[in-house]
């Protein structure tokens, strides 16, 4: 039988527990906002090696130049692939508006085989990025409002104390866009880098894991130098190695347009010091 005292106790316990959940969610939101808003310079350039490992241990490497620049309305990215021959001159341009604008990003792809720049719809980001284990969704900038998230603990990874956060899609659209029913994210407490991320499918199965393997401080900014994603179902693995990295360099606005990906990267497009180090 429930006595008034018991009811009061139960109510108190429930409200205490509810406020603990709310607090965990608030903390988790704040942490994910810190991840999204962390200082990554006003511009960024890197030569990237994308290494695809098949289940038999064979590896193929794809090279591209990655450029990013901040604009008042959001970030713009351009990627120019240079090797191997079958992806040479493939290029992407992405415009990612700030989350507060509530708009999806815009993407264009240039394929040398058709000599055309084509607009790509961004509603489905489940596809593999250039055949790798990274999906287009995995490479998206963090959006806090797309998920309900809660802080579930602390762990140490690569000798770095991390928050552990569980994220679930806040809407069916996010689930459709990414294909992930749940994410578990390890965030470095000090610099807010994502050190590990587990990806669960709609059946709750852990399908993929992204791991940060190497971090370095470049131009005063802690940066991921080597990341790896393993697909547990397919038995495949991809590495993304940032061979050269530069922040806050002068990048011309003309590199962040649709026209740029058709034209390709030419000598003189990048600052002289950037070219010499690549």
């Amino acid at each position: 039988m429930f006595t008034p005292l018991k009811i009061l106790s139960a109510t108190l316990m429930l409200s205490l527990s509810a406020s603990a959940v709310a607090s965990a969610e608030t903390d988790a939101d704040a942490i994910m906002r810190a991840v999204r808003d962390r200082d990554d310079g006003r511009s960024f350039l890197s030569q990237v090696s994308l290494i695809l490992h098949d289940k038999n241990g064979n590896a193929r490497t794809r090279e591209f130049l990655y450029l990013q620049k901040d604009y008042p309305e959001g970030d713009k990215f351009t990627m120019f692939f240079s090797a191997p021959a079958d992806v040479r001159d493939v290029a992407f341009h992405i415009e990612n508006p700030k989350e507060a604008q509530g708009r999806e990003d815009s993407q264009w792809m240039y394929l040398p085989v058709s000599r055309q720049t084509r607009r790509i719809s961004t509603s489905d980001k489940r596809g593999a990025f250039m055949g790798s284990e990274y999906s287009y969704a995995d490479l998206d900038k963090v959006r806090v409002g797309d998920y309900r998230q809660k802080l579930v603990g602390d762990e140490v990874l690569l000798e770095r104390p991390c928050h552990v956060i569980e994220r679930e899609p806040a809407s069916p659209e996010t689930l459709t866009k990414t294909g992930y029913n749940k994410l578990k994210v390890w965030v470095d407490k000090e610099n807010h880098l994502v050190m590990r991320q587990d990806f669960f499918d709609v059946k709750g199965v852990l399908v993929k894991q992204m791991r940060t393997l190497s971090v370095a401080t470049i131009d005063g900014i802690d940066s991921i130098m080597l990341s790896e994603t393993e697909h547990f179902i397919d038995g495949t693995r991809s590495e993304m190695r940032f061979n050269q990295l530069k922040y806050n360099i002068e990048l011309d606005d003309k590199l962040f347009t649709q026209a740029a990906i058709r034209r390709g990267l030419k000598a003189g497009d990048l600052p002289e010091n950037a070219l010499s180090s690549l």
Partner: peptide
């Protein structure tokens, strides 16, 4: 002309 209509559709 080309436009992203959302829902994974692009109209050209």
């Amino acid at each position: 002309l080309a436009a992203d209509l959302g829902n994974s559709l692009v109209l050209r």
